[in-house]
């Protein structure tokens, strides 16, 4: 995104939200509480995925996600998939790598840029979500996402998890299990992986395991050239 566009967006945001943004001196409306009020605006949730430890053919993280969020587990073009297992191969060396791929929770998310209704948004703690009350199902965000992370719900659903509302006509993607995070938990995939491939935590907290590891080992962001600064990083690619 060019600087001009960024400035324009910021200008529009301030112009539209001037009345509502500042609640009290030094306190922004969208900076209030996040389950944990002390951490407000300082937290950046992220994941570090150790591809060397990820077992080809293992699907435990995907299964856990499907169960937690009430996805059917189908992989047809019209089925929702929030996390996928991907096997990649370097043709010249023959080296094969297996990794889970989901919404990368970009710091500058293109899905949010293109959403005409404001349904796609980023919380102050870095989690990118769809507010399904506002989503009109236009699917622009699906087109814009470079990681193909989003799915559209094509059929009516019944018997959803009371913590994970989902419905026909809206777009959805990995929420980092936001309902668990808000209660102090961690994403279902990270919990389910027996090989501890997925390390979840606060990238902004220098004392957290993830921040320490990101500092000490080589990790990459997928399509870093796009400069979206994803919150999900990969090790051993």
């Amino acid at each position: 995104m060019s600087d001009i566009n960024l400035q324009r967006r910021n200008f529009l945001k301030t112009a539209a939200g001037a009345a509502m943004v500042t609640v009290a001196p030094g306190m922004l409306l969208f900076d209030v509480a996040h389950g944990n009020p002390q951490s407000v605006g300082k937290v950046r949730w992220g994941m570090l995925i150790d591809t060397a430890a990820c077992v080809p053919g293992c699907n435990d993280c995907v299964t856990a996600c499907n169960k937690e969020n009430g996805l059917s587990g189908g992989t047809a073009a019209t089925d929702s998939q929030w996390i996928r297992k991907i096997e990649i191969k370097d043709i010249s060396s023959g080296r094969e790598v297996s990794l889970p791929m989901m919404c990368q929770h970009c710091e500058s998310p293109p899905c949010v840029d293109v959403c005409p209704t404001g349904a796609s948004f980023k919380r102050v703690d870095g989690i990118v979500l769809v507010d399904k009350h506002r989503c009109i199902g236009c699917r622009y965000c699906m087109m814009a996402c470079p990681y193909k992370a989003r799915s559209f719900v094509h059929e009516p659903l019944q018997d959803q998890n009371p913590d994970v509302p989902r419905g026909k006509g809206t777009v959805e993607s990995c929420t980092l299990c936001v309902h668990r995070i808000d209660q102090g938990g961690q994403p279902a995939c990270a919990e389910a992986c027996a090989n501890k491939v997925i390390l979840f935590g606060d990238l902004n907290d220098p004392e957290s395991a993830i921040a320490k590891k990101v500092k000490s080992v080589v990790s990459t962001q997928i399509r870093a050239d796009l400069k979206l600064n994803p919150g999900v990083r990969y090790q051993g690619l």
Binding site: F30, V32, A33, H34, G35, F121, R123, D125, L129, D131, H133, V178, H179, I181, D182, Q183
Partner: peptide, 8 residues
């Protein structure tokens, strides 16, 4: 409150 700010 819940969707945008995570206040559950």
């Amino acid at each position: 409150e819940t969707v945008l700010k995570g206040v559950r």
